[in-house]
Amino acid sequence: MQIDTRELACGGLFVAFAAAFAYGTVDLPLGSALRMGPGYFPLMLAIILGVLGLVIIFKGLGRAPSPIGGVPWRGLLFILAGPIVFGLTVRGLGLAAAIALVAAIATLASARAGIRLMLLLTLSLTVFCVIVFSYGLGLPYALVGPWLAPFLPGR
């Protein structure tokens, strides 16, 4: 028998989410339909989601696989890393360095960008953002964070 792997994965993912959310309601009081507790509504939704997921799987059985297409693994890695690195460094390194890091990481996501483009983009984006966000909009974040303090020339 043929199986549409895309539908299988899709339904499976929904079922997995449903199970995770249902598990999350275990500790929550359910209450009754007339006096709903915090767990009632989400559990109902999780059940609905699970059923929908199963129906999607069921309908995928006996069908030819749908094309999924390639996955840009390199892009996936670097694009998702961008915001995370920004989050990890913006308080410690400050806004300027965090911006530079994200810009550099993001350029790495593309196979086409060379080292020259990366440096150019990093520099120009950092300068642009510092001017717009720090000076223009006055975001209340330190440009240079405490981690960098020891490396700066003292007074």
């Binding site: 720090s134 000076y135 006055g138 330190a142 440009l143 303090a149 020891p150 700066l152 003292g154 007074r155």
Partner: peptide
């Protein structure tokens, strides 16, 4: 005032190691 403030912030950050 804002630019002055930001410049001041930079200078102050620079003076960090001195305490």
């Amino acid at each position: 005032a804002r630019i002055v403030a930001v410049v001041a912030a930079l200078m102050a950050a620079a003076g960090f190691s001195g305490g």
